[in-house]
């Protein structure tokens, strides 16, 4: 039964994204209790997908704590009741949280920017409709994007594809640095040209999969705005546009932080 729903979900995600991202509008308009139940269901669905994404990563050894965190006696005692090796279980839990953190932060950013776009376009039919749209689009497509990026950064056979992806990201950051003329450089400097002639077929497929996932991700957000918020094409494009400019805002914000705030000084002051 669960497997049937899971495979149907994957089928919809690939072939029928409109069905996949569509919410049952009536459920949201009934009453507060109904909305609470739907919100709870969406949270469980989101957390399930988060674990589905971060679990295998953690099991395969991803994530490394830069600082050693030791469980408190109460937590250690509780873990002792469930597992034999409390240290390993605690380490696994910390790495699981660490691996989930990136996609969790990305989800929050996507949700706020998407709903902001919907509000700006004046087509909001409710916050749960945005939660539904983002939960489903992030749960599958953004998770796929993150997984492919992880894969690109680790697999030996596709090192060139990873180098190219990093170079593109650096070029993106330098695009804003050059426009803003702030005289700031990345620690690793400008990207060197990558010889794509050495790109392997696996690398090509991984990059193609990555771009396809980005397309699906943005398209489902568009469909979510169209179907769940009953938005027009232009209003939906505004919502997707708001999400799309998030990386640019993030880069500009980071540059502003570096230029106007001496982080080193603040950290030193706090520690003192």
């Amino acid at each position: 039964m669960v497997l049937s729903y899971f495979s149907l979900g994957i089928f919809d995600a690939v072939f029928r994204p409109s069905t996949f991202v569509q919410s049952q509008v009536d459920n949201y308009t009934n009453n507060r209790l109904g909305q609470l139940i739907v919100g709870g269901r969406l949270s469980v669905f989101y957390l399930f997908n988060l674990v589905l994404y971060a679990g295998p990563l953690t099991l395969s050894g991803f994530g490394q704590s830069t600082v050693t965190i030791v469980p408190g006696p109460l937590l250690e005692g509780f873990l002792g009741l469930v597992v034999a090796d409390t240290g390993a279980a605690f380490d696994f839990g910390v790495r699981l949280l660490q691996n989930s953190a990136y996609i969790f932060i990305a989800s929050i950013l996507v949700f706020f920017t998407f709903h902001l776009g919907i509000i700006v376009a004046r087509s909001s039919t409710g916050i749960l409709q945005s939660v539904h749209t983002v939960t489903y689009s992030v749960g599958i497509y953004l998770a796929a994007i993150f997984t492919l990026v992880w894969y690109l950064s680790t697999a030996e056979a596709i090192a060139i594809a990873d180098d190219w992806l990093i170079a593109i990201q650096k070029q993106y950051i330098y695009f804003f640095l050059d426009i803003l003329e702030v005289g700031v450089d990345l620690p690793t400097g400008r990207p060197d040209p990558v010889d794509l002639g050495r790109l392997t077929p696996q690398g090509q497929f991984a990059l193609a999969g990555l771009f396809l996932s980005v397309f699906y991700f943005l398209y489902t957000l568009y469909l979510g705005a169209r179907i769940n918020h009953d938005a027009t094409r232009v209003e939906s494009l505004i919502a997707v546009g708001t999400v799309s400019v998030t990386p640019a805002l993030y880069v500009i914000g980071s540059i502003a932080l570096v230029v106007f705030i001496d982080i080193q000084q603040i950290v030193t002051a706090i520690l003192a």
Partner: peptide, 25 residues
């Protein structure tokens, strides 16, 4: 570069293949 065009080719190929399969179903 040819490799970039190849990547775009695969993206479009997979996308249209999914659309055609959907219409077929």
């Amino acid at each position: 570069e040819k490799q970039l065009t190849d990547i775009v080719f695969w993206v479009i190929f997979l996308l249209f293949a999914a659309i055609l399969l959907r219409f077929g179903i």
